[in-house]
């Protein structure tokens, strides 16, 4: 089953349950008492999920490791490499 089919299956199932509750096909006192909440629940769910995703992305952006040490270490190694290669007879192409 492709990911698309999985999504369609889950969304279809949840949608069917939602519609059945809304049209009172499934007898339920909670659905009658909280009709508005039930009606807007998909929108509320998507909005909450969006907020969660946004928070998560921002948190991950701000905690993204900058690897400054790795960059400094690399700069030192580049100098070492150039020196050592020159000793071994490597001719670097001169960049103007």
């Amino acid at each position: 089953m492709t990911k698309l089919m999985e999504w369609l299956f889950v969304v279809g199932t949840l949608g069917a349950i939602w519609l059945a509750l809304l049209t009172n096909t499934i007898e339920n006192s909670f659905a009658k008492d909280h009709y508005d909440l039930l009606l807007f629940s998909p929108v509320i769910f998507v909005a909450l999920f969006g907020l969660y995703a946004l928070t998560l992305v921002l948190y991950r952006v701000f905690t993204f490791n900058n690897c400054d040490e790795a960059a400094e270490e690399l700069q030192k190694e580049i100098l070492q490499a150039k020196e050592d290669l020159q000793k071994q007879g490597f001719k670097f192409k001169t960049v103007q």
């Binding site: 992305v57 952006v61 900058n66 960059a71």
Partner: peptide
């Protein structure tokens, strides 16, 4: 301990998103 050096906010945001 993974990470990236040399990316600005925008690049990190796109990557994480």
């Amino acid at each position: 301990g993974g990470g990236v050096h040399g990316w600005d906010f925008k690049r990190k945001l796109i990557s994480r998103g």
